[in-house]
C-alpha cells in the first residue's frame, strides 16, 4: 500500500495548493469589492439619509452587504474552479475520487458559519436597542425609543384606502397631507380603522403596520435635508392597495409652523365634528369599517358622524 499512501500524500499537497489558489483569488476580489461597496456604492444605497432612521438603515445595509460579498465570492469562485478543473473529459465515464468527509474542512466551516451568524445576530440586536431600529413599529409602548422630552406627535390613521394624519398638539386637527419640520424628533402613532395597513414613509426610514384597535409607535428624527418623501401602504389591504399612497414634505421649522397653523384654522370646522382624540378608534364609532359588523355591534354606538 506504499504507492497509494504516496498518492494520498501527493493529493493532499495538491489539495492544499489548489486551496490556496482559490483563497488568493477570493481574497483579492473580496477586498476590492468590499471597498467599492462601502465607499462607492454605499453612500448611494437606499433609502438615503433624510432622517436618522433612514441613515441607520443605510448603514446596516452597507454592513450586511460587506459581509455578504465574501460568501457570494466563496461559492462563485469555488464553483467556477471546480467546474473548470474537475469536469469529466468527453467520453470519460470514470468516477471521481472517494472522499466522504474531511474533519478539518468541516470543522472550519461549522465554526466560521457559527461565528458569522452570531455576529450578525449580535449586530442586529445592538443596532435595534441602540435606537437604530426605532423607525419600525415598536408596539404601543416601545422600550427602545429616543430620549426626547416632547417629540412632535402625529397620529397616522389608515383606512381603506387612504392615510389621514391627526395632530393632537395642534388641537386634534386632521390633515390629508403630511409636512414635517427639519431637525425634529417625530413620533408616529399608527393605527387603522378597518383592516391591517402599513405606513411606509420610504425616505424617512419609517415602517409600521397599522392594525385595527392597536397603537403602533415609530420614531424618527429629521435632519436638515429638506424635500419630498413618499408614503405608501405596504400591507395588502384590498383592491385599491396599489393606489394607497401620498406624499409628504420635510420643510424648515418656520414653514412647518405656518403650514400647521394655516391648517388648524382651515380645518377648524371639521375638527369639532371629529370624535375626541384617542389612540385607537372603534370602526363603528368612526363610521368606517365597511359596515361589516353593523348596528348590532356590542361595543359601538350606532351614531355616525
Amino acid at each position: 500500500m506504499a504507492a497509494s499512501q504516496q498518492a494520498l500524500a501527493e493529493r493532499k499537497q495538491d489539495d492544499r495548493r489548489r486551496g490556496w489558489q482559490i483563497f488568493a483569488v477570493w481574497f483579492v476580489l473580496v477586498v476590492i469589492t468590499d471597498y467599492l461597496v462601502w465607499f462607492v456604492w454605499g453612500p448611494h444605497m437606499p433609502p438615503g439619509t433624510m432622517t436618522n432612521t433612514a441613515a441607520a438603515q443605510q448603514f446596516d445595509f452597507k454592513v450586511l452587504t460587506a459581509m455578504v460579498v465574501p460568501v457570494l465570492f466563496m461559492v462563485w469562485i469555488y464553483g467556477g474552479y471546480v467546474l473548470i478543473n474537475f469536469r469529466a473529459k468527453p467520453g470519460d465515464r470514470g468516477d471521481g475520487v472517494v472522499i466522504t468527509g474531511n474533519r478539518k474542512v468541516q470543522g472550519i466551516w461549522y465554526v466560521a458559519s457559527t461565528v458569522m451568524v452570531l455576529f450578525l445576530a449580535w449586530f442586529g440586536t445592538f443596532e435595534l436597542i441602540s435606537n437604530n431600529g426605532i423607525g419600525t413599529g415598536g408596539g404601543p409602548s416601545p422600550i427602545w425609543k429616543p430620549n426626547v422630552k416632547s417629540p412632535l406627535v402625529i397620529q397616522v390613521i389608515a383606512q381603506q384606502w387612504r392615510f389621514t394624519y391627526r395632530w393632537p398638539q395642534f388641537g386634534g386637527m386632521e390633515t390629508t397631507s403630511l409636512d414635517l419640520p427639519a431637525n425634529t424628533t417625530v413620533k408616529f402613532d399608527v393605527t387603522s380603522l378597518d383592516v391591517i395597513h402599513d405606513f411606509w414613509a420610504y425616505q424617512l426610514g419609517v415602517k409600521a403596520d397599522a392594525n385595527p384597535g392597536v397603537n403602533n409607535v415609530a420614531y424618527t428624527t429629521t435632519t436638515s435635508q429638506l424635500g419630498r418623501f413618499t408614503v405608501r401602504c405596504d400591507e395588502l389591504c384590498g383592491i385599491w392597495h396599489g393606489a394607497m399612497y401620498n406624499y409628504g414634505h420635510v420643510v424648515s421649522r418656520s414653514a412647518f409652523y405656518s403650514w400647521a397653523h394655516q391648517m388648524q384654522v382651515q380645518n377648524a370646522g371639521v375638527t369639532k365634528l371629529l370624535p375626541p382624540f384617542s389612540l385607537t378608534y372603534t370602526p363603528s364609532y368612526s363610521g368606517a369599517g365597511g359596515g361589516y359588523y353593523p348596528s348590532y355591534d356590542p361595543n359601538g354606538s350606532t351614531q355616525t358622524y
Binding site: F61, V68, G133
Partner: peptide, 19 residues
C-alpha cells in the same frame, strides 16, 4: 440565502419588508 440575512435584520427589514 444571502438576501434572507437582510430580511432578518430589523433595521434593514424596515426597508425591505413587504417590498
Amino acid at each position: 440565502g444571502v438576501t434572507g440575512v437582510y430580511n432578518s435584520d430589523v433595521p434593514v427589514d424596515a426597508l425591505v419588508h413587504g417590498s
